[in-house]
Design a protein around this nucleic acid. Structure first.
Lengths: 103, 103
DNA sequence: CTTTTATATTAAGAAAATTTAATTTACAAA
DNA sequence: TTTGTAAATTAAATTTTCTTAATATAAAAG
């Protein structure tokens, strides 16, 4: 047994990782974009924009980048189009439990 | 079958409920307070303050109130002390999966 | 009634996130 | 090489959230 308490809590680096994820999910547009991507499997940026009539192309592009840079999404370009899909399985797991709890 | 598409997604009121929860969890102090309360079962406001050396009493009290008003926590007073505990089982379920995923 | 301890409230300033508008880059086709 | 479409970038304005400091309330004890 080490001198450091081995607790089952969320402090330290693991908490920071969880917070990063929570902060991304905790926004209506980002959460909705994630729903759309999960439902589609893979979808172009333009189709995401089309699915969010109230949001601007700029805002969506900014959030797609943020989610890509944080490792939640991946993107591949095919000609003019950029296809987004989910990369982080932890995001999928959290989205699933949110659906189970709230839907 | 109604004309409205019956989808398995997160839109509408259910999404708003989930967002309310996510917004509360998405802050290091609030998340840490919730961890402490879950670990303790029931704990006084003062002991929560003592467990957060970097946070002020005022800030903790404000967040306790916000979490109580949003239905996540309950509180009971016994003399000078106010005991907090978890009320919303959805919060517990989300905290559990966060621990499973990130710890 | 005064003091002490625990907790809550309020308001203002500081910091961070969100939103919007304008512009730019990337690629393909004519 | 110009044009059109898709997507990304930048910067400023706006809004929201967080933090701090000061004060107030609630309850018990002396």
């Amino acid at each position: 047994m080490s001198a450091v308490k081995k607790s089952l809590n969320m402090r330290g680096k693991s908490m920071q990782d969880a917070l990063l994820m929570l902060n991304i999910l905790a926004h209506p547009l980002r959460l909705s974009i994630l729903c759309t991507i999960i439902e589609s499997g893979e979808i172009t940026a333009g189709d995401i924009v089309a699915s969010e009539p109230q949001a601007s192309q700029s805002q969506i592009s900014q959030y797609l980048r943020a989610m890509r840079e944080s490792g939640i999404l991946t993107a591949r370009r095919d000609g003019l189009f950029v296809y987004y899909s989910l990369k982080d399985k932890k995001a999928a797991a959290i989205m699933k439990i949110l659906k189970d709890l709230y839907c």
